[in-house]
Amino acid sequence: MKNAGPEMQVDIGGLIIKNPVLTASGTFGYGSEYVPYLDITRLGAIIAKGVSLEPRAGNKPPRIMETPCGMLNAIGLENPGVHAFIKEKLPFLRQFSVPVIANVFGETIDDFKRVTELLSESKGVDGLEINISCPNVKKGGIIFGSDPDMAHAVTREVKRLTDLPVIIKLTPNVTDICLIAETVEEGGADAVSLINTLTGMSVDIERRIPHLANVTGGLSGPAVKPIALRMVWQVAKRVKIPVIGIGGIMNASDALEFLIVGARAVQIGTANFINPSATTDIIDGIEDYLKRHNIDDINDLIGTFDEEGNAC
C-alpha cells in the first residue's frame, strides 16, 4: 500500500529514483560512515566517493580550511581504486536497496574508459557520474571539463562502453558552463550535475603560507549556493537532459530553490558534514512543502520558476 504522501519519484536520464535527494560524491564516503546517523534506505540514490583506475593516496595535510560560510578542501581524490571499490565497498552499498551511482574520474580518456568498463561489468552500480573536473595529463593538464572538445570526447567514449545512465558532473570554473553542458548533451550524456566546487585559496598571514598544503582547494557550502543556483537555472534552460543541482544545499528550502529553477534532483554535500542526517531531513522538508502547497507530484514543481514574477 502506498503512503498517502505526495509523489516524489523522478527520472534522471533513465534512472528512476524514489525521491530527488542524492548524496554528493566525496561527502558521504562509501556509505558506512553514515549508517549510525540516518536511515540510508530513504535516500533517492547514493553517489559514492570518486574512484580512479589505480588507488590514490591523496594530498598531504592540511587538506581543509573553513572560510566564511563555506570550506575549502583539497583531499586529492584519495580512493582505493576501482578494483577495491568493486570488491570491498560496493557489496556494502548494495545492501540498502538504494540505487548506487559510482563517481568516476581519470587523468586520461583511457582511464575513464577502463573504469567505466569495470564498473559496468561489475553489475553492481545503477548509474555513473563522470567527474570531468580533473586535469588531462596527456593534454598538458588542461581540465577535461573546461575544454568543450575534451568534455565531448570523454562523454562519447564513456557512453559507447556502457548501458548505464551517465551523468556528467560539470565544473563551474569555466567561462560558459552552458556551452560545456550543451557539448556533453551532444556527446550523449543522460544528465548533467552541477556545480562541482569553485577553486579558491586561503592564506595564513602570520606565516605567509597557504592554509592548504595543495595551495588551492575547492570551495563548497552555503557560500557557493547563489552561484550554483544561477548556473543550474541557466543550464536547465539550455539543455533537454535532466539537470541535477549541487552547491551549498543545507536544508529543504535550499533544495526547493534548485528544483523550482529546473533541477530534476539535488545532491547534498557539505551539509552532511555538519548534520549527518541532512539528506533525510531535506526529504522530509520537501514533502512538507509539497503538502503545504497541495502539490501531488514533485514533477509538477520542477522548473516552475516564474522569472517575471517580481517584475512591476
Binding site: 566525496g26 561527502t27 558521504f28 564516503g29 560512515e33 553514515y34 546517523y37 593516496a57 591523496g58 598531504k60 595535510p61 592540511p62 587538506r63 581543509i64 580550511m65 573553513e66 570550506m71 578542501n73 583531499i75 584519495e78 557539505t270 552532511n272 558534514f273 549527518p276
Partner: peptide
C-alpha cells in the same frame, strides 16, 4: 589535533601521515 569537517570519517580532511608499515595506509 587536526582541522576537521565531519568528525565521522567521511570527509578525509583531518588526516595525518603515518610511517610506512603503520598498518593503516599512508594517511
Amino acid at each position: 589535533e587536526e582541522r576537521m569537517a565531519c568528525g565521522i570519517g567521511a570527509c578525509l580532511g583531518c588526516t595525518v601521515l603515518l610511517k610506512d608499515g603503520g598498518g593503516r595506509g599512508e594517511h
